[in-house]
Amino acid sequence: MWDHEIKAMASSHAIIASSVFMATVLPAVFIQGFSVYGTHLLWLYSVTGAVSVINIAVFWLLGISQPTKKNTISYKLSRLVRSCLYLLLSCLFYHTVVVLYGAPLIESALETFSLAVLLTSLTTLRCLCVLGPNVQAWIRVFSRHGAMSVWDTSLQITVACSLIGAWLGAFPIPLDWDRPWQVWPVSCSLGSVIGYLTGLVVAPAWIHFHRKQLTYKCK
C-alpha cells in the first residue's frame, strides 16, 4: 500500500546518509589536515551543514510537509521566521540539557553549543521539514498513536536513534583510555551521527517489515 512511499523514503534516506559521508570525505580532500578527531568542530559543522541542506532540499522536493492553507507571502515569511526561532530555541534547549547532563558549564561552551547545533540539525530540523513549525504536532508525533504517516514513523525512529546515540556517546568519556575520540564532545557527536545513520537505515526497513501492523489515521 505504501510501497511507493517506502521507496521514496529509502532513496531519500540514502541521499541524506551519503551526504553525511560526503561531508566527512570531501573536506578531507580539499582541506589540509582535516580529520574527524583533530578538527572535530570543522567536521561537525560540515556534517551539520550537509544534513541541513540535503534534508531541506529533499523534503521540499518531495513535498512531504503538510500543505499550507494560506499562500500569502506574509504567511510564508512568518512560517520562516518561526522556523528559525524554533531552531534557535532548540539549540538552546539542547545546550541546557547537555549541560544538565554534566557537560562543563563555562569552559568548552563552544563545543557544547556545537553539539547542540548538530543535534538540532539531526532532530528539530527534520521535525520542521516533516511537520512544519507546529509544536503541537511535534509533541503529538512522539506518542504511540501519534504517527499519521510513514514519514511520521520514520521521524520518530530517526529522532530517537540520534538522541540515544548521543546518550550512548557519553558513556566512554570517563574511561581512562586517553583516546582522541574521548575528548568532549567527539564521542557524543559521533554517537548522534552514527545513531542518525542507523535511524536512516532502520526506519524504512522497520516500516517495510511492519507495514501490516501500521495503521494511520487519515491526515
Binding site: G102, I139, S143, R144, G146, P174
Partner: peptide, 29 residues
C-alpha cells in the same frame, strides 16, 4: 574509571531515568 567518576555517573543515570518517565507517559498517551 566509572567508580572514580561515580558521582557523575549516578547523576547522569538519574537524569536519564527521570526524563524517561514523562517520555514514556507521553508515548503511552
Amino acid at each position: 574509571s566509572y567508580v572514580i567518576a561515580e558521582g557523575r555517573v549516578v547523576t547522569f543515570l538519574l537524569l536519564s531515568l527521570g526524563l524517561y518517565v514523562p517520555v514514556r507517559l507521553h508515548w503511552d498517551g
